[in-house]
Structures are given as structure tokens and as C-alpha cells.
């Protein structure tokens, strides 16, 4: 009996460890835990909401892109299936709005030309030092991987449940919480250095170098979605998830079939195994 109990306990503990291991432990008294949001792309059957991605892209272009790069995204990616799915002409038109450096030309000089679909997103600053000088001493991180590179600790018991619900949205939850979580005045007793802003969700302490980027009606949506900070944050977070994981839809599509296939194959193999072993009296 004892060993049964212990084994049950160890199994539970194993699950616990498997999961704690993956999330950074929270240092004492740091940032607030971002609440879970609804995302259309969560779960095995999750898909991106194309209209949301396009809105998020609009917010990114009009607000974020002045400081944040998107270096792993090429303009052609904007036309790819399982993403924003702009037409070829739309992609060309968007690319042409940006200039990229090319060259050297016949005179041996680098020159600027309008971007083509095959070009990657041009960087907002020449280098990180310039970026840091323009932004309170901190270079704005590139946005193409942020949705996977940032996550607050999920904590118990969420991380155990996450294994069964396939929760992979800690990054977007964090981005949404950060963008909507700015507070005008830091709470009593908290000193914020000049130029920094107070944000209780910020993982690197509560003083963030990014000034509140969004405000109501900053971006004019064409599809009638309410022009609120909340919608902007949600849409741009979804867009950043796509930028970090552009193959998510293909992955989940193949995954559902692969899972189904293995389940059926496993069942058939079990029947064969049973049938064969029936020959052995035991």
C-alpha cells in the first residue's frame, strides 16, 4: 500500500518538476503576474484571426515600428498562408513604402531603394547604440521574437494545467499586460528614475524605459473595431505572436492529423499485440 501511495505521489511530483523546470522562478516581490487572455490561436485547434493580425500590423507600423525592428520578417511573409495573407500586389505596395540599403552600385557606393517583397524589414536604428541613445538609454528590442522570448512565471497550479491545455500564450499575455498596465503615478514609496515609466508587469523591475506607447484613438481602424488601448494592445500582441511563430497554423494543422494518426495506429498495434500474446498462455 505504502509503495502505491508513494508512487502516486512521485508521479504527481514528477509532473510538477517537469513543469517548474521550464518557467523561471520568480524573484521575491517583483512584477505582477499577467492575467490569461483569450487568444484565437490557443489550443490544438487554434488559428490566427486574420483581421486581428492585420489590425495588429497596422498598430505595429504606425506606433511600434518607429523604435522596434522586425528583422526576421521579410515583406513576402506578409503574403504567406496562415498569416496576414495580403495579395502579391498589396505586399509589393507595402514593401515600396519602405526603403532599404542596397549596393554597392557601379560607383562603389551604397544606395537606398524602395524595398521589394524579398527584402527584410529595415531596422529602425542604424545600430543598438543609436537606438539606446534615442530611447532613455535602452535599445528597444527587436519585435520579431518577443512573443516567445518574454514570459512571466506561470506559477502553481497553472503550469501543470498548461500541459493539458497546451497553453503557450504566456508571451502574448505578458505583452498585452505590459501595454495596458502603465500607471501614471508609481505607488507610495516607489522611486522611478527620470525618463522611465512605472509598469507593474515589467519583468526587469517596475521601471521601464519605454514610454506608454498607446493611447485611445492613436490608430484609426478601418473595420470599425473600437479604437481603444485595450484593442490595440490585444491586436499588436497577436501580430507579434504571428511574427514570432509564422508557421503556427501549419504546425497545429499537421499536429491534429499526426495525433489522430498515432492514436489509431496505436490502437491497431494494441489489438495485434493482444492477438499475438494470446498464443502464449499467461
Amino acid at each position: 500500500m505504502t509503495s502505491k501511495l508513494i508512487s502516486a505521489a512521485t508521479c504527481a511530483a514528477l509532473a510538477l518538476v517537469l513543469t517548474t523546470a521550464t518557467t523561471p522562478a520568480k524573484a521575491a516581490g517583483e512584477s505582477l503576474k499577467p492575467p490569461s487572455q483569450y487568444w484565437s490561436f490557443s489550443g490544438p485547434f487554434g488559428r490566427y484571426d486574420q483581421a486581428q493580425l492585420r489590425r495588429g500590423f497596422q498598430v505595429f507600423r504606425e506606433v511600434c515600428a518607429s523604435c522596434h525592428g522586425l528583422k526576421y520578417i521579410a515583406f513576402r511573409n506578409l503574403g504567406e498562408p496562415g498569416g496576414l495573407e495580403f495579395t502579391e500586389d498589396e505586399v509589393k505596395a507595402i514593401a515600396a513604402e519602405y526603403t532599404v540599403q542596397d549596393g554597392p552600385n557601379a560607383d562603389g557606393e551604397m544606395f537606398e531603394r524602395p524595398a521589394k517583397p524579398a527584402d527584410r524589414w529595415p531596422p529602425p536604428f542604424e545600430n543598438d547604440v543609436v537606438g539606446a541613445l534615442a530611447n532613455n538609454g535602452v535599445a528597444p528590442p527587436d519585435a520579431s521574437l518577443l512573443a516567445k522570448a518574454r514570459a512571466a512565471e506561470r506559477g502553481f497550479p497553472s503550469f501543470v494545467i498548461d500541459m493539458f491545455t497546451t497553453h503557450q500564450e504566456a508571451g502574448v499575455d505578458y505583452i498585452y499586460a505590459l501595454l495596458t498596465g502603465y500607471e501614471d503615478e508609481p505607488p507610495e514609496g516607489v522611486e522611478i528614475a527620470d525618463g522611465l515609466s512605472y509598469n507593474p508587469y515589467f519583468l526587469g523591475g517596475n521601471a521601464i524605459a519605454m514610454v506608454p506607447p498607446l493611447f485611445d484613438e492613436a490608430v484609426e481602424y478601418e473595420d470599425g473595431t473600437a479604437p481603444t488601448i485595450d484593442n490595440y494592445a490585444r491586436d499588436v500582441a497577436a501580430f507579434m505572436m504571428w511574427a514570432a511563430e509564422p508557421k503556427l497554423e501549419q504546425r497545429k494543422f499537421i499536429g491534429v492529423w499526426a495525433f489522430l494518426y498515432l492514436a489509431i495506429l496505436g490502437a491497431l498495434l494494441y489489438l495485434i499485440k493482444k492477438k499475438i500474446w494470446r498464443r502464449v498462455g499467461h
Binding site: T22, G43, K252, F259, L262, L265, G266, W277
Partner: peptide, 30 residues
């Protein structure tokens, strides 16, 4: 062999769950 292959299929089923639906679960954001 048949018993082993059956378990391989079950193990791959578990593997597929992580591989396709939460490939970054066991990794670290940093």
C-alpha cells in the same frame, strides 16, 4: 517487438502532443 512497437506509438503520441501543440513548453523563453 509488437509490444515494443505499440509502446513506441503511445510514446510518440505523447511526443506529438508537445511537438505540435506546445513545442516551447519545455524550453526557456530567454
Amino acid at each position: 517487438t509488437m509490444k515494443d512497437i505499440f509502446v513506441v506509438a503511445v510514446f510518440l503520441l505523447l511526443f506529438a502532443w508537445f511537438l505540435f501543440f506546445q513545442p516551447n513548453y519545455l524550453g526557456h523563453p530567454d
